[in-house]
Design a protein around this nucleic acid. Structure first.
Lengths: 145, 145
DNA sequence: CTACATTCTTGAGTAAGCTCTAGGTCAATC
DNA sequence: GATTGACCTAGAGCTTACTCAAGAATGTAG
């Protein structure tokens, strides 16, 4: 199949397909004598693998690394496990970070919903003040976010 | 205080301070007759507010919006609450998304740790196969990720 | 007065993951 | 055989939040 068909089959844009190939995520793609890409079933499968790797949140460069291991055969299973272990670790950190931001955002929401009636405008430095009060009052009835 | 001192006081680079001012996050910064910045205590406080907004994960353009409301006075409390509500919402979505990726990464880690002994290499399309087996076997003893 | 430090502005560079453009080639159709 | 459509490559553009560089002017110490 050619470019357009492949694009439709995979849901990736033609640009993206060419980009992945340039980056080495897709390899050994056949060409017609005139230089046009002729994708095979194997290529479609490879794209499915890539989708799967993206579903784990891997970056392009992580995927490159995986592809390298992938081409190394069964011996590289332990390294592949390692790759995903590292990925899981960094996802956990990132989630924790966002959770912290979420706590602040929830607090701030609560704060601006209640400043007036609480009569407690601390001026501009609102961030960490009132926090204790928030802990007491709002944790039971969590903000709607 | 001048640039360097301000930079040290706030922990922001001189570049960043100028950038924030260009973007309107810092405003009404005084200048000496020769055109150099002369920061006041109020400016330092403003930077603390900005830090606080960043702690909620707001983007520069969200912060711009907040600053606009901020300059509008007490009347804008409800809109400020709204801004943080929206932020909390998108943080929750993002966290859910990363959590999904984490599940995949944990699964993949488990998969590559166990393919050999399970003797179940499904070929390239490894992603969603074996998943059921994973659910059963690994949920009790969750992967170390 | 000279040297060196600090600051100024404008504009370019960075990373990620594509997208889009320009300019040209090849294929299929009327 | 000319138009239309699909495709090619190389390289620029996009976004975010800054960072860095260039070149000029000001401030300060000796």
């Amino acid at each position: 199949m050619k470019m357009k068909e492949m694009s439709e089959a995979t849901g990736l844009s033609e640009h993206a397909l060419r980009y992945y190939e340039r980056e080495g995520l897709l390899f050994d793609v056949k060409r017609t004598p005139s230089g046009r890409r002729e994708y095979s079933k194997k290529d479609v499968e490879m794209v499915e693998v890539l989708e799967c790797l993206k579903a784990a949140g891997l970056s392009i460069s992580d995927i490159k690394e995986f592809i390298h291991l992938f081409r190394g055969g069964e011996e590289t299973y332990p390294q592949r496990a390692d790759l995903f272990r590292r990925q899981a670790g960094s996802l956990r950190s990132r989630i924790a970070e966002l959770q912290t931001q979420l706590d602040v955002a929830d607090y701030k929401t609560w704060y601006y919903e209640n400043v007036l009636e609480l009569g407690a405008d601390d001026g501009p430095l609102v961030c960490l003040k009132m926090r204790e009060r928030y802990e007491k009052m709002a944790k039971g009835q969590p903000p709607r976010g």
